[in-house]
Design a binder for these strands. Structure first.
Lengths: 174, 174
DNA sequence: ACGTATATGTTATATCGTAACATTACAAGA
DNA sequence: TCTTGTAATGTTACGATATAACATATACGT
């Protein structure tokens, strides 16, 4: 599969589809660099490395997983080092927090200022970002009916990715 | 407001509406008793008390909040006591886990075997259970498009309840 | 009453997250 | 270039959330 529409294609998402992940990740990094430059924000070494680590796969990593990677590469070894980098990435739309897993994953639609929904495979832990607009619209409407104003929404689904439905425990998409 | 349709009315949900919470809570408890009896499960003292504590308000409580209440009433004082009771209640549809807050709240639609969405007020911490069906349907459709099979979904919105939009920091619905 | 499954309680530890403060790198003006 | 304020990194220390493993007690069917 070409990466013409990767990693920030409009649709469909491709975390579960076979694809050449090298360009997928490096395109995302390039895009992140552009986005931060445009905002006058700095992609410092820790931040950049943190993003690269998240971009290694379409999966979620715990803050402490990221931290041990960073520490082993000479960065600080204390939790705030990882949390600050992850929070920064999340704040600027380059990563997402997956609440179900208390973990983080790289954003696959950087710069699109989207409301995301996540599909989380409980077997191989792969994560795909799905279009959340319809779901979010329905949620907004339910909220409005109660006079509630939504500021941010968490929409996450746990289940089985295509590969794990067929070959449980065997495959792990990049 | 009468509690004809409380706490397990079809719609709309009333966590944010003024209502007589006494019957709201005791009706829910009665319903829980019936549900468990029908399934041959036991609402033991810890479980019952845990549910009562959750039913005191339309809000989420952390496991340790519940634990300290239980402990002060003579139940066990160690985390598993609270987590087991909370997990039991959740497993049988009497309570929900609010991922966003790492907390738990009583279910307001016991026995309806529903997929729930939650509206969480970030000011007064009140929680309302909203109809999740439309939102969930949209999510299912997004999942199907990627060949993903959803087993369970987390749909939570953070924002402002009606009271806190008008009088921030002042009111706290029962 | 007995035996078994269920539930409760405990100790201990794992995992996740943040407050507070010291130090270092950076950019912008004198 | 030097200063100087701001942002970023690093540290210690701690708080909050959650579970594993095992001991004890309770309920229920026979």
């Amino acid at each position: 599969m070409p990466h013409d529409n990767c990693p920030s294609c409009a649709a469909p998402d491709l975390a579960f589809a076979a694809h050449d992940h090298g360009p997928c990740a490096s395109d995302a990094l390039a895009r992140a660099i552009g986005i931060l430059a445009a905002k006058g924000l700095r992609l410092t070494p820790v931040r950049r490395r943190t993003l690269e680590i998240l971009l290694e796969g379409h999966r979620a990593l715990g803050a402490y997983d990221v931290l041990s990677r960073l520490a082993s590469e000479g960065f600080g070894a204390q939790p705030p080092v990882a949390y600050r980098a992850l929070d920064f990435l999340e704040e600027h739309g380059l990563a997402h927090r997956i609440r179900r897993l208390n973990a983080f994953t790289a954003c696959m639609h950087m710069g699109e200022n989207h409301s995301a929904a996540f599909l989380i495979c409980r077997v191989c832990n792969a994560i795909s970002e799905a279009p959340a607009t319809p779901s979010r619209a329905a949620l907004d409407s339910a909220a409005t009916a109660q006079g509630f104003t939504i500021e941010s929404a968490t929409i996450e689904a746990l289940g089985l990715c295509p590969a794990c439905q067929k070959a449980p425990l065997l495959k792990a998409p990049a």
